Amino acid sequence: MVTEELYAKDSYIKNFSAKVTKIVPSGVILDRTAFHPRGGGLESDTGALILGGNTYRVTEVKFEGNEIVHVLEKLDGLREGDEVEGRIDWERRYRMMRLHTASHIIASIAFSKYNALITGGNITPEYAKDDFNVENKDLLPKIVEEANEIAKRGIKVKVYFLPREEAMKIPGVVKLAEKMPPELETWRIVEIEGIDIQADGGPHVSNTEEIGSIEVIKVENRGKGKKRLYYTVKP
């Protein structure tokens, strides 16, 4: 059974009910989940599964083949068919949502103004880092400054789904160098109205004003034509 990906439809689901469909050595597979698995440069959600009076800590969520595995600290007492309540560590998730939407604004400015693509990156609850194929590292703080001005405008962030062939017609729908989304028939699209549109599978805030202030931590030279930007968000 394929797990229904609730997180792909609504990033604001904090609690949900689900059925345990399979138990594996590292954890459990559910029929539906709001936990976002690690992928797309984002760390996974953490949280808990509740069954009766028992709490099962979710330490990681990951894909194993086509299955989403919820890694648990313990499995004692869980059985296939059990109905559980899932609870997301919301503060952690929400910070990653803010950073993730900020990263899309930054990537859009880099692409539209400097034809720069992201060559790698990672988002944690504390900070994000993105590698860009640019020569001048002084460009990156300027891009962040412009991204802050855009975020303050309170622009709506929309999530919807398009057939692959239709999505491929959108200029700049993929801003990762040398990488395309999987060969899926349907792509999930994240659009910051008038600013950016990308194929993306991760959670986002619904309005750019939720991002807060984007602050540069540091910029590193990672070699010729490769600069790394570290940044975080503040209230």
Rank of each mutant, 00 (worst) to 15 (best):
V71W: 04
V190F: 05
A48R: 12
T208F: 13
F63M: 14
S17K: 15
G27Y: 07
E126F: 11
V216Q: 08
I123K: 01
R164F: 01
G194T: 04
S11K: 10
S17A: 12
V134A: 00
I109H: 01
I13F: 02
R57L: 13
K19A: 11
F16C: 10
K152M: 04
L140N: 01
M97Q: 11
V20K: 03
I13K: 10
T124M: 05
S44H: 08
L184K: 12
W90E: 07
M180R: 14
A110S: 06
V205L: 06
V159D: 06
M180L: 12
A128C: 12
V24F: 06
L42I: 10
V58W: 06
K169G: 05
I29R: 04
L176G: 02
Y231H: 09
I217S: 01
V28A: 10
Q198E: 13
P181A: 06
G172E: 07
E135R: 08
K227M: 09
G202T: 12
G201S: 13
R32C: 01
D196C: 10
R188E: 10
G39E: 00
I170E: 00
I214Q: 08
V219L: 08
E178H: 14
A107T: 05
S11H: 09
V174E: 08
H204D: 07
A128V: 12
E83G: 03
A147G: 00
P182R: 08
I13M: 03
E165A: 12
E64M: 14
E209S: 15
Y94A: 03
I68R: 11
I29K: 02
I29V: 15
D82L: 00
T232P: 00
R79I: 05
E183L: 12
I189F: 02
P203V: 15
E83K: 14
E166Q: 12
G52R: 09
L99E: 02
P203I: 14
E135W: 07
E183A: 15
S17R: 14
I214F: 02
D130M: 14
L162P: 07
E178Q: 14
A167R: 01
R92M: 07
K9Q: 13
V20P: 05
R93I: 05
T59N: 11
F161L: 08
V61M: 05
P203G: 13
I192C: 13
F63Q: 10
K218T: 02
R188H: 12
S103Q: 11
K22W: 08
A18M: 03
F63C: 02
R79A: 12
Y94N: 15
G40T: 02
L72G: 01
R164Q: 10
K226L: 15
K142P: 09
E91N: 14
E135M: 08
N115E: 04
R153I: 05
K19C: 10
D130W: 11
E210S: 10
N54R: 12
P37A: 04
N122C: 10
V233A: 02
V173C: 07
V173L: 12
R79S: 15
Y160W: 14
